[in-house]
Design a protein around this nucleic acid. Structure first.
Lengths: 263, 263
DNA sequence: TTTTATTATGTCTTTTTAACACAATAAAGA
DNA sequence: TCTTTATTGTGTTAAAAAGACATAATAAAA
């Protein structure tokens, strides 16, 4: 991808961004029983970053986060919530070796005549508000941004080297997800429209990081009265196939207000 | 209070603040069975605001919030946590009539020669991170800031007119308090060292906005094993006086990690 | 000593959680 | 068509927690 023109564009628009304010999106997806997070890889070096961006002067922050989400995944109207703001003095590009190398690479990509702008922009103190999004992996079509060579799902247990304080941000997002599990649309956002109870259970287990009793899980979930039961699934295995369920929007949303009880 | 000199001070230091970034503190206190929030009243007009401030370039945001807390209450090492960042486009001084009047007053207080600085500073878009603090009312000695004529506890059910989006911020803080009640040091932070079980129950009731059974509350609390029992209280009433309890730091902190179960 | 009113605890019922068991069943293969 | 398979969906119990209400102990005042 030719990044130079886009960089020029950015320079041209730099005055339209609120200085010192950025946002990062921790986009969670669930695949093969494992929770993944969406990351971007910078050109030429093995350093990754969260999708994010700056805040346009005339835009609501959530709207800007939504744009990031849309540009990386093609998805809109996705569950998205602010969960913490990061402002530490040592969260800048000099925080760790990966960040410093990445910054040098970025600077090389910048046009010679705009080096001063680069420095003053990237050396200022940034306050970044972090958002958490939950999406269905198979619905997303991933697109890298101007500074990155690719955009990939990475399992949360095998995170690569990350710039700035992005590792910390992901850890905090995971913790938020775990603590707030009863108030977030986990099943509806992370699973396909139809799913089996075992799939739902595995999802909960991967977030809570502990095993749950299958029978009890199923009973408790079904008793909530938020599921529609569908026809059977073809598994290809020589055994009984499970029922497929989908979530009834209205009763689900009502229930989330008081919380779905899992500990 | 002579505010002119302090204003000059502020102008002198304006370059030492991160532009466009502020912080607000929702400081909760508990008195006479009612939850209160600490507010400042601007000079000459009946408009109030949350204690807050700007972020010095060389300071961590939490440290700055701590300073606000200390300057208003004289207290340090208090429970303090970030809970949400407010960045809406329409949260500025023109949001409502109270804000506009307050801004005019502030501008009048400003030195003539610094009117330009005033305008550019107060007209920029501000991103404000809101903190929540829990303190013991009787330990705090309140001090107004340079722009305010007094600093007072206001019951959450009778909030006065507030500038900017401070009413919204307080509402969100209350909601956070309610949702997170099992993970926040409610009793230890808001009550004096020694308290009766009924006092603790009333506190929970004022946050959860519902009545709790006295017997069950007491048993559940005592079973947690985090209380030290003290000698009796003298009430002056012609009936049995209740025991006083205090909280054992260590076991309390351990327990908070998993949450104290109240719904 | 009596009165008083409130605490601290008791009892009972209902609900929830937890651990484990097992029959029904649908798909595959013979 | 019948058998094999192993996973689902439901059952069964025991233990724990929650909820509603009752009552005895008790400390202060009269």
């Amino acid at each position: 991808m030719e990044s130079k023109n886009l960089t020029e564009d950015f320079i041209k628009h730099i005055k339209t961004y609120v200085p010192g304010v950025s946002l990062d999106c921790v986009i969670f997806g669930y695949r093969n029983g494992v929770l993944h997070v969406l990351l971007l890889k910078y050109f030429d070096i093995n350093v990754w970053a969260l999708p994010g961006g700056f805040l346009p002067n005339d835009m609501e922050m959530k709207e800007a986060a939504n744009d990031v989400l849309f540009n990386r995944t093609g998805l809109q109207e996705i569950f998205l919530t602010q969960f913490q703001t990061f402002s530490s003095l040592n969260r800048g590009w000099d925080k760790n070796i990966q960040s410093r190398v990445a910054k040098e690479k970025l600077q090389l990509m910048w046009p010679k005549k705009h080096q001063e702008e680069f420095k003053s922009w990237f050396n200022q103190r940034f306050i970044s508000t972090a958002y958490l999004a939950l999406i269905q992996v198979d619905k997303a079509s991933l697109t890298a941004d101007d500074l990155s060579e690719c955009c990939e799902w990475k399992p949360i247990s095998e995170l690569p080297d990350l710039v700035l304080d992005h590792k910390l941000i992901i850890e905090m997002a995971l913790n938020y997800l775990k603590v707030q599990i009863n108030y977030l649309p986990i099943g509806k956002s992370l699973l396909p429209y139809k799913f089996t109870m075992l799939e739902l259970q595995k999802l909960y287990e991967s977030i809570l990081q502990k095993r749950l009793d299958r029978g009890n899980f199923q009973r408790k979930m079904l008793k909530l009265g938020i599921f529609d039961k569908h026809e059977k699934l073809m598994t290809g295995a020589s055994n009984k196939a499970p029922f497929l369920y989908s979530i009834d929007e209205e009763s689900y949303n009502n229930l989330l207000l008081e919380g779905i009880g899992f500990r």
